[in-house]
Write a protein that binds this DNA or RNA. Structure first.
Lengths: 167, 167
DNA sequence: TATTGTTATACTCTATAACTATA
DNA sequence: TATAGTTATAGAGTATAACAATA
């Protein structure tokens, strides 16, 4: 933990390119989402998880948090906005009364459908356009293991092992 | 511009993995920078550009903005914070009196040096660890063209062509 | 006692528009 | 007239800690 040799040009290149690509992409996507549906990126992700990934359209708060938000209160805040807008409903979880189950509404699905085509268009124009099919496959193949590694990694300040939503 | 077929699993996988990896990495890195040197990520990037990339330790505001910040006022804000902390000095550009040249100070270099080893350590642990050498090369080779494409892309709302810092 | 989620609060960052000064 | 940068201001998002309720 004492010496730390600097990174070489290629490593730095990968790092900076990653961060800048993701930053620019997120910026563009946020703008599209806001214009098309008044959604923040986090709100979109929550709606997408409920409406696209979940067969029931529901999910528990804690499970929704993964990778979307870094604090419990942040999730409560965003879910609250979605609920105010009528895009989502919250109810106590049937099995565990402590939990809250979030469910996408019809209006939520409508907004999701309205926003999705433009979202995809931005991704194609900005992100996918310069990549060949094998490029995209390679990229996914490289980044997915990194994501899994990061998810598994303990939050490097020797804090309690539970990461999920909140320290 | 009317129909927009959905993305397939691989394309979505690349997109979501990219965003989540960059998000988690940025979160971890911001925490380290704040603890080690009281720097925001943007501040770190500005210092790094001045102290590491520029041979003179100086740069013009507009040139510093690229990819770091999305509005001119945001740059002024962050540069102001750096100046308040004594890590940077601002002065009118000699050649163009409208411009402002930002220069890193000794204190700025000291903070940069202090922060860098921990920064690199986070990158190794979280990002580079699961990647082989050829993986890193491939990743850089894939993402750099995307970054260049994005930089060149006009901000898709048919706004005036100048992008740089600010609309 | 541990976990789930909310609330209150404070703070950081970002963005828009109006403005100044130089080219 | 166009560009470089600043300022004011307002708003969105985030995190921390204290809290309530259930397991």
């Amino acid at each position: 933990m004492s010496e730390e040799p600097p990174l070489d040009r290629v490593q730095l290149g990968a790092y900076f390119a990653l961060m800048e690509v993701a930053g620019l992409l997120r910026h563009a996507v946020e703008q599209q989402l806001r214009e098309a549906g008044g959604l923040s990126y986090v709100q979109f992700q929550l709606l997408a998880r409920l409406g696209l990934d979940s067969p029931t359209g529901s999910g528990r708060m804690t499970d929704l948090a993964d990778g979307v938000v870094y604090s419990r209160s942040g999730l409560t805040y965003q879910a609250g906005l979605l609920e105010q807008a009528g895009l989502v409903v919250r109810a106590p979880s049937p099995d565990d009364e402590r939990g809250v189950t979030v469910t996408i509404t019809g209006a939520g699905r409508a907004v999701l459908d309205r926003v999705l085509p433009g979202h995809v268009a931005v991704l194609r124009e900005l992100f996918l356009e310069p990549l060949s099919r094998p490029d995209v496959e390679a990229l996914a193949g490289l980044l997915e293991p990194v994501r899994d590694h990061m998810r598994a990694a303990p939050p490097r300040s020797a804090a309690p092992r539970r990461r999920r939503a909140g320290a």
